[in-house]
């Protein structure tokens, strides 16, 4: 019970901080817009195959950028203060939930702008949005945890990318397959099985995060 209360409180805190420093969220949203436009001007017409790949690449890079700041935007003394107040699991849980929301917003925006300029080839919206939801969750868990690691080191921007990209490959591959199916680039009746695999990956990562974060947090 205490965990849920603490988590809810910390999520409110995250939103409040975000709201006060609007440049962070504004920066990320503008990042998505600029990237989409760069991709569009480079390709002009996007085949569904390319659309699918580019969409996830944009979301991937925007997500890394959005989440990289998770543990560095507040200074270490304030983090120490949180540590005395809340359990480490509440802290990581609140950040993961908050980041999932942020990534959902970000993916929705990428999808909207991308469809506007490059057309919308999605044939099965349900499958596509399930992919977006599960993908946001997977990215959020992985990147939040890696940003906690990278924040402990000095050159965290480079570390964030090199530590997280290889790890996120299984998620990306499954996402590309599900959304290729949603775009009807391929027909696979067992697409629900892939979604289950994605759910399983998300759960494994979440469980490992819960076990490991207390070790990472104490300083």
């Amino acid at each position: 019970m205490a965990l849920i209360q603490e988590t809810a409180f910390l999520i409110r805190k995250e939103i409040k901080i975000e709201w006060r420093q609007k440049y962070a969220i504004g920066g990320i949203l503008l990042y998505v817009l600029s990237t989409v436009f760069v991709v569009y001007t480079a390709f002009k017409t996007l085949e569904p195959q390319v659309w699918n790949t580019m969409f996830w690449i944009i979301v991937l890079f925007a997500s890394v950028n959005a989440i990289a700041k998770s543990f560095v935007q507040e200074n270490s003394s304030r983090q120490l203060y949180y540590y005395t107040l809340a359990s480490p699991n509440a802290i990581i849980f609140s950040k993961i939930i908050y980041n999932t929301g942020l990534l959902l917003l970000l993916s929705a925006l990428s999808f909207g702008v991308f469809s506007l300029v490059a057309g919308n080839p999605v044939k099965s919206s349900l499958e596509f949005f399930v992919a977006v939801f599960l993908g946001s969750m997977g990215f959020s868990i992985t990147f939040t945890f890696i940003s906690a690691i990278a924040a402990k080191a000095s050159n965290s921007a480079t570390l964030m990318a090199i530590l997280s990209f290889p790890i996120v490959i299984p998620i990306i591959l499954t996402l590309l397959k599900i959304s290729a199916n949603a775009l009807r680039l391929m027909q696979d009746s067992s697409v629900w099985k892939d979604m289950l695999i994605l759910v399983a990956i998300d759960f494994i990562l979440l469980a490992v995060t819960f076990i490991l974060f207390p070790f990472l947090w104490r300083d």
Binding site: I167, I169, I204, V208
Partner: peptide
């Protein structure tokens, strides 16, 4: 540990 757990699904 985290990387190993993330790799198993591959």
């Amino acid at each position: 540990i985290f990387a190993f757990a993330a790799l198993i699904p591959l």
